[in-house]
Amino acid sequence: MKNEDLQNIINGLGENLEFSTEESEFLNVLVPKEQLHTICSQLKSNKDLKFDYAFCITGMDWGKELGVIYHLNSTEFKHEIVVKVKTEDRENPTLDSVHDIWQTAEFHELEIYDFFGIKFNNHPKLRRLFLTPDWEGFPLRKDYVDEANMIIK
């Protein structure tokens, strides 16, 4: 399916969605964080979309906002989109978990929590996956400082 057709269908799923195809090979959809879970579940269940395969979930620090990028694929139609969600709350960033839609998210969300400190609502067991439980800070954030372990050129 063409990106324009995808955009038309997805546009009907929620409000205030921002689309862009610039600077990327995929159709990018910026979803307001309140609608993340409903839109994602519709992306999967809609019979024309069927985005059932989340092949890459990336945590992101845009400097001002934190967020998550979902690369989605449909194993049936082979079309792909990128869903982005942002939150401006850097102190206590919270997003909805999508692990009930794509089970792989359970693990990726642990990784994102570990490195970006984004908390996911309804996640079965949010814990430090890579780092020790008493680790302070979230290393992949841009404002993370660790003078002992980081060499900055």
Partner: peptide, 18 residues
């Protein structure tokens, strides 16, 4: 600005418990 490696092992590991 940001590099993410979507490694095959990480996703495959997530299914192990199941």
């Amino acid at each position: 600005y940001r590099v993410k490696f979507r490694s095959p092992g990480f996703s495959n590991l997530s299914v192990l418990n199941h």
